[in-house]
Design a protein around this nucleic acid. Structure first.
Length: 641
RNA sequence: GCCGGAGUAGCUCAGUGGUAGAGCAAUUCACUCGUAAUGAAUAGGCCAGGGGUUCGACUCCCCUCUCCGGCUCCA
C-alpha cells in the first residue's frame, strides 16, 4: 500500500503493516521516538495493523499529541499501581490535562503523603518492567463482564455513545500485564517509554463533577518527554510559587489578611495603599478620557431594591444576609453596583439627547464566597469594582461597544498586559429576552471585536442569562491566563426597573445597558500585577520608586536634598537613615524590589552627583549629576498613557 | 459547602505527655561604612480559640476559626 505524505510517498512492504512499520517507513530515525501514528487524522497505536491508505503522520513523544498520549499512559500506570497497592480500590477516570494528568479513585481511606510515595515507587517499578500496552477490542457485553467489579467503569460502559466510539457496539480497553482499563487509546508501546514522571498531590473530587455523587480521591501527576523537561516544569512550579501574591504581598508590605478580620478580607498597608491609589488614579483618568461620568453610591441598600433587581432571587447565596433594626426596613450589603447606577439613571426623566449616559464608580462590594474558594486577592469576599454602566439607545450600541473595547484594551496595555484574548459568550440555555435581541447584540459584539482587531473566540452558551458578554483574559509573564475585564449587555435590569427615555418622536423608549469592569476588581487586578511582575513593578506602578542611601551620617543632609529634588520631580523617594552599612541598605532596597537606588557619599556631596542603580541591573553608575539622574528617573516613571 | 493537609515569637521553622528553642526581623549600644547581610546585648510566646482526657497537655480526643491543595461554585 502507499503511504502518502504532503511531500513524499512511502511504500510499505506488506499488507497489514502496523503503525510501527509506518513509522519506520516514513522515517527510519523517527521509529524510535514514535509513540503513535496518525492515519487520516486519527490517532492509532503503533501495534495496530493499518489496512487502509491515507495521510500518515508519526507522533513523537515530544509533540503535543505525543505528550497527551504519554500522560494518558502514565495515568494508566498510576491506576495500575493504586489497584496493586490498595485492596478494594476502584477507579473512575484518568485523563491527561495541561502539564500532566490525574486519576480518580474510590478507596476506603484518603491517600496520605506516604501513600503517594509508595504509589510513585510502584509506578517506577511498572515502568522499569517495560510492560507492553495491548489494545483489546470487545463487545459492550464482554466489557461489562470484564469490569464487573468496578462500578464507575460499568457506568461509563453503559453510557458509551456508540456513534461517538464509531464502531457500533465495540468498546476498547488497554491491557498491560494483569491490569486492564477502558480506553480509546492510543498509548505508548510499552511502559518503558515513559521517560520522566512525578506524582504531585492528591485531593477530593466528585464523581462526574457532581456535588451530590460519590466523593473520590484524585491523584495528580505529571509526565514529560525527558528528565530535563520534567525538571524545567518543576522549576516553573517553584517560580510560580515565588510569584504568589499571597506570599509577595505581605513580604513587600503591601497588604495582609488578618485572621481577626475574617476570611477573604484584606487590609492594605501604606505601600499597598499607594499601589491601589496609582491603579485607581489611572482608572479615573481613563474613565475621564473615555468620557464617563463619576457617581458615588453607598454600601447598603434596602432589601426591597435587591428584590426588584432580582438579586435576592438569583444571587442570594452570594449575598450577606439582611440586617434590620426593629421597625426599620431590612437592608443588604451590596454585591454589585448595578441597581444603584440604575437609580441614578431613574432619578429624573431622560431624553434621547442625554444618551449615551456612562456612569462609573469604584464601588466596594461584598459577596459571600464559599469558604473553600477564597484565594487571596484573586477571590475575596470584599473588593472594589471599577464598575461602569452605560445607558444607550439601540442605535448607539455599536459605537459604545467599540468605545468600551478601546477603553479596556488601553487599560490592559497600560499595565503591561499586551497579550490578552477575548471571549465572546453567547446566549445560554436559560436566558431572558427576545431571541432577536440576542442575535442583534451578539452580532454587534462580534462586529465591535472585529473592527477593533481583537483576537477572540466564541464561548457558545456561556453568556449571562441577561445578555451576551465579552470577557478579557490576560496572559501574565509566565503564561498563565487570568480573567480581568468584562463588557456585558443587559436586557434584564432595564426591564425590571422600567427604564425609559423619551425618543425624538416623543415616544417612550427602553434604553440598553452595558456593564463594564476594566480591572474587574482593583484588589484582584493588583494581585495579578504582583504575580505578573513578581513584585518588581514598572516604575510608574512602584509604591516606592527611589531609595536614597547615604554612605555615612555626614551625608544625611545631602541625601535629604536629593530626596527633595526627586520629590519635586514627582518621584516617590525615601531616604534610608537606618544605622546600617551601605551594603545592608542596598540589600533591603533590592529585596523590596525598589526600582531605583541612589547612593550618595563624599564625592557626590562635593560634586552634586549621585550613584544610581536600577533594579535588574547589577551594576551601579557613579558620579551621575543629580539633575541628570532626576530627569532620567522621571522619564522612567512616566505613565504609559 | 465537600475531601485531605496544616496552624509554635512579626517572618521561616525545630520541639512525640513533665509548664518552649534557633535564624531573620525588632529594640539598645558600639561601628560611619561606596553597591545584596558590621558586631554585641536585650526584649519578644495563653504553642490559633474553646472544651475534654490526664497528677500533669504544644503534644492525645472533640468543636470552632484561619490558611494550603483540589472538587463544586464563580452575575
Amino acid at each position: 500500500m502507499d503511504l502518502r505524505l504532503p511531500d513524499q510517498t512511502v511504500r510499505t512492504h506488506q499488507e497489514g503493516a502496523t503503525g510501527l512499520d509506518v513509522a519506520r517507513a516514513i522515517g527510519p530515525g523517527l521509529a524510535r521516538a514514535a509513540v503513535a501514528v496518525k492515519v487520516n487524522g486519527d490517532q492509532r497505536d503503533l501495534s495496530r495493523p493499518i489496512t487502509e491508505g491515507g495521510d500518515f503522520e508519526v507522533i513523537t513523544i515530544d509533540s503535543d499529541d505525543g505528550l497527551h498520549i504519554l500522560r494518558h499512559s502514565t495515568a494508566h500506570v498510576m491506576a495500575q499501581a493504586v489497584l496493586d497497592l490498595f485492596d478494594g480500590a476502584t477507579f473512575a477516570i484518568g485523563p491527561p490535562i495541561e502539564d500532566g494528568f490525574y486519576y480518580d479513585f474510590e478507596v476506603s481511606d484518603p491517600f496520605t503523603p506516604e501513600d503517594l510515595e509508595r504509589i510513585e515507587a510502584r509506578m517506577a517499578e511498572i515502568i522499569a518492567e517495560d510492560q507492553p500496552f495491548e489494545r483489546v477490542a470487545m463487545s459492550r457485553t464482554e466489557a461489562l463482564d470484564v469490569f464487573s467489579g468496578h462500578k464507575f467503569k460499568v457506568e461509563i460502559i453503559e453510557n458509551v455513545d456508540p456513534s461517538e466510539v464509531g464502531a457500533g457496539d465495540e468498546v476498547t480497553a488497554y491491557r498491560n500485564l494483569d491490569f486492564i482499563d477502558l480506553c480509546r487509546g492510543p498509548h505508548v508501546p510499552t511502559t518503558g517509554r515513559i521517560p520522566a514522571f512525578r506524582v504531585l498531590r492528591s485531593s477530593g473530587a466528585y464523581w462526574r463533577g457532581d456535588q451530590d455523587r460519590e466523593q473520590l480521591q484524585r491523584i495528580y501527576g505529571t509526565a514529560w518527554a525527558s528528565k530535563s523537561d520534567l525538571d524545567d516544569y518543576l522549576t516553573r512550579l517553584e517560580e510560580a510559587a515565588k510569584r504568589d501574591h499571597r506570599r509577595l504581598g505581605p513580604e513587600l508590605d503591601l497588604y495582609s489578611f488578618p485572621e481577626e478580620l475574617g476570611s477573604g478580607l484584606a487590609v492594605w498597608h501604606p505601600k499597598g495603599g499607594m499601589l491601589r491609589k496609582i491603579i485607581e488614579d489611572h482608572s479615573r483618568a481613563l474613565h475621564e478620557r473615555f468620557e464617563f461620568d463619576f457617581v458615588a453610591t453607598p454600601h447598603l441598600g434596602k432589601s426591597e431594591l435587591w428584590e426588584k433587581s432580582g438579586h435576592l432571587d438569583f444571587y442570594a447565596e452570594n449575598m450577606y444576609p439582611n440586617m434590620q433594626f426593629e421597625g426599620d426596613p431590612s437592608y443588604h450589603v451590596k454585591p454589585m453596583n448595578c441597581p444603584f447606577h440604575v437609580l441614578v439613571y431613574k432619578s429624573q426623566g431622560r431624553s434621547y439627547r442625554e444618551l449615551p449616559m456612562r456612569l462609573g464608580e469604584l464601588g466596594g462590594v461584598y459577596r459571600y464566597e464559599q469558604s473553600g474558594v477564597i484565594h487571596g486577592l484573586l477571590r475575596a469576599r470584599g473588593f472594589t469594582q471599577d464598575d461602569s454602566h452605560t445607558f444607550c439607545t439601540e442605535g448607539q450600541i455599536q459605537d459604545e461597544l467599540e468605545r468600551h473595547i478601546d477603553f479596556v484594551t488601553t487599560w490592559l496595555k497600560d499595565f503591561g498586559f499586551d497579550d490578552y484574548q477575548a471571549e465572546l459568550s453567547t446566549k445560554p440555555e436559560k436566558a431572558i429576552g427576545e431571541p432577536e435581541r440576542w442575535e442583534v447584540t451578539e452580532a454587534a459584539l462580534e462586529k465591535a471585536l472585529e473592527t477593533k482587531g481583537v483576537r477572540y473566540r466564541i464561548a457558545e452558551g456561556e453568556g449571562a442569562f441577561y445578555g451576551p458578554k465579552i470577557d478579557f483574559h490576560i496572559k501574565d509573564a509566565i503564561g498563565r491566563l487570568w480573567q480581568a475585564s468584562t463588557i456585558q449587555l443587559d436586557f434584564n435590569l432595564p426591564d425590571r426597573f422600567d427604564l425609559e427615555y423619551t425618543g425624538s418622536g416623543n415616544t417612550s423608549e427602553k434604553p440598553y445597558m452595558i456593564h463594564c469592569a476594566k480591572a474587574g476588581s482593583i484588589e484582584r487586578f493588583a494581585g495579578i500585577l504582583v504575580e505578573h511582575y513578581a513584585g518588581a513593578f514598572p516604575m510608574w506602578l512602584a509604591p516606592e520608586q527611589v531609595s536614597v542611601i547615604p554612605v555615612a551620617d555626614r551625608h544625611d543632609d545631602y541625601a535629604e536634598q536629593v530626596k527633595q529634588r526627586l520629590r519635586d520631580a514627582g518621584l516617590r523617594a525615601e531616604v534610608d537613615l537606618s544605622q546600617e552599612t551601605v551594603g545592608d541598605k542596598i540589600r533591603k532596597a533590592l529585596t523590596q524590589k525598589h526600582p531605583a537606588v541612589i547612593v550618595v557619599g563624599d564625592d557626590d556631596v562635593a560634586n552634586g552627583t549621585v550613584g544610581l542603580r536600577l533594579y535588574g541591573e547589577d551594576r551601579d553608575t557613579r558620579g551621575v549629576p543629580l539633575i541628570e539622574a532626576t530627569n532620567r528617573l522621571a522619564e522612567l516613571a512616566q505613565r504609559p498613557s
